[in-house]
Design a protein around this nucleic acid. Structure first.
Lengths: 343, 343
DNA sequence: CGTTAGCACTCACTAACACCGAGTGCTAAT
DNA sequence: ATTAGCACTCGGTGTTAGTGAGTGCTAACG
């Protein structure tokens, strides 16, 4: 446990370092208005805080920088959130209000404004498909052996997949299948489609359709993409402005991550509904070793349906970021609700 | 006009420089097996070639590097294309054969293999929508005031757009509109949809639908995305491996370009059907000042329907790249044809 | 006894300098 | 016309000394 004075000093060091990106010395801390004691005292305290693992020294005769553990302590005990200004809140609201948005774009726009306001990279997961429902199913045949299957979701998202049709399945079979599918499964959450299909609709389908197995295979194919999230990313090039990423190799690793939707998806998939902060190694990803990941879920009908978040250097202004992300995710949820005419 | 010997020397310098990325000196040229004369002679010749603007000297006591004009001369007069190996041809064919591909993915995969084989960034324009036809039109209503309009194209591409529906337009109107649209405009090239709609279908629509103007507005909205190309980009992070882009600021500009589909679209839209090479400033884009852009159109029924290309440093192996791109674009055209059951 | 002033010490960073070597341009010999 | 020889250029590297921000320790102080 830190003493009050140690907390004050740690707070001051992080505050300084976040702005300057330079190791912080005892003298510059002592000049702050909220610090009343001398550099020597600060040095002693800094040494103690370093022993606790919250600070690091790049080399003997340099100032201190916060360690990942230090940031963690700061985030858990010291940060005052909601430093978000009224102007920024207005800007976000205006941004959203400015355009007639469809649910799909809404998340993109949210990522856009988030990245603009923070100067960091914004990542978002589209409305989680497992929690949205099927609105319409359609098959458009392209050739005797191929067709395009289309699923429209309750959020206005359209998923399409080219499917192959086995021999012997005719247009009549397809039409019946589509009819039954629409009649019985509209409004069913996407992730339940497959089970519901087997349990409730299979019987009826067999009655109407000759080649049930083949038709079923087509549906299986069609459902495939519907299960994938949509990963949105914005402001990727902003990381080049951060001094810690002037090193090309580090930047390269980050950009490889930015292009890897698979991994981003895993990183962004979070259970908790509040704002979550992962610092450096806590992200579990090598490429993010000098980065922090802040995420927030957005909701629909009170249930989380997607995630929006930020990737920035560990040296970031957590208070502001958390406040901003909290606000934007709330605003996003609200707009989402408004759009889809939810309860 | 260059003498034969000057051509030989220019060719040698470019060959060397492409591999080493270092200014090439007279001595290293003289060591090549195809060069029979002494460094001093080479120096004299180099000086002459420099006067013609085909070579540059980073500083007085350094070797020569090719200028953009030098590369242009090389490409126009010296390069021997089709250095592509049989193994590579096989690899491309295997890659394509390995998967059951739909038209949409085909181009993506082509960009993927191109980037893999070249270690440069591959860019492609999806099957050009102006040259593909409408296969199916559909409207799925989401709420009283919104709906999702879906257009399936002859290449299996699905475009969707959320449209707003003005008051007074009912489901019956929409259904009639969709029916007329499908009945009369299936098979029409996308870029002609709007005109054909006005000229041929408008009359019939007015007869069936009460609120023609409103319905028309919906169609206008729906056609919007159908006119946009799909820009595919792959291997973006590969540029970090090129020594000329170890400089973060240059890399930043390039990445900004990579994210700007608008500009990429313009860059990639080319008329000629063969392989086109633009070197440095010839691209007309600031961010590509040290880059070359090589493009090739791919065809369907003999007509160009899209473009595939490469972005790499001006210092690239043009012979190989041209051969490879020629081959891949041909292969892509062939597969495209095979898939869609074209003539 | 906690706090602080004083001081020796550390170490990254920078400038100045010499040196090396790859490469040129010129001249004179072949 | 070609080439060997040579003085010269200049970026890159390694050395050295100086600077300054910062530390840790010790001793004095209230």
């Amino acid at each position: 446990m830190l003493t009050e004075r140690q907390k004050l000093i740690l707070n001051a060091i992080i505050d300084d370092y976040v702005n300057s990106a330079e190791p912080v010395g005892s003298r510059s801390i002592s000049k702050r208005s909220d610090i009343t004691f001398s550099p020597a005292t600060i040095r002693n305290e800094m040494s103690d805080i370093e022993d606790l693992g919250l600070l690091e020294q790049p080399h003997t005769s340099a100032g201190r920088i916060p360690s990942e553990k230090g940031y963690r302590y700061y985030v858990d005990h010291l940060v005052k959130r909601n430093e978000i200004s009224l102007q920024e809140m207005d800007r976000v609201r205006e941004y959203f209000a400015d355009r007639m948005l469809q649910a799909e774009n809404l998340v993109e726009e949210a990522a856009g404004i988030l990245s603009q306001l923070t100067k960091y990279t914004a990542v978002a997961l589209g409305p989680e498909i497992y929690r949205t429902t099927m609105k319409h199913f359609q098959i458009v045949s392209m050739s005797p052996t191929t067709a395009v299957a289309i699923i429209v979701t309750s959020t206005g998202h359209v998923e399409s997949k080219t499917v192959t049709i086995e021999q012997g399945v005719g247009p009549a079979d397809l039409e019946k299948m589509v009819n039954v599918f629409n009649a019985r499964l509209t409004g069913v959450p996407l992730h339940l489609l497959r089970t519901r299909l087997y349990n409730e609709v299979a019987a009826e389908l067999t009655r109407h359709v000759d080649r049930f197995e083949q038709v079923f295979k087509i549906i299986e194919q069609a459902l495939e993409p519907a299960q994938s999230h949509r990963v949105i990313i914005d402001g990727t090039t902003k990381i080049f402005d951060q001094p810690e990423f002037r090193n090309v190799d580090q930047a390269k690793h980050l950009f490889e991550l930015f292009g890897d939707t698979e991994t981003l998806l895993k990183l962004m998939t979070v259970q908790e509904t509040g704002v979550g902060i992962r610092i450096g190694k806590e992200t579990g990803n090598e490429a993010l070793s000098n980065c922090s990941l802040i995420t927030a879920a957005y909701t629909f009908d009170g249930k989380p349906i997607g995630t929006i978040g930020l990737i920035g250097p560990t040296r970031m202004s957590y208070g502001r970021m958390v406040g901003l992300l909290e606000f934007i995710s709330q605003e996003l949820s609200r707009r989402m609700q408004g759009l889809s005419g939810g309860s």
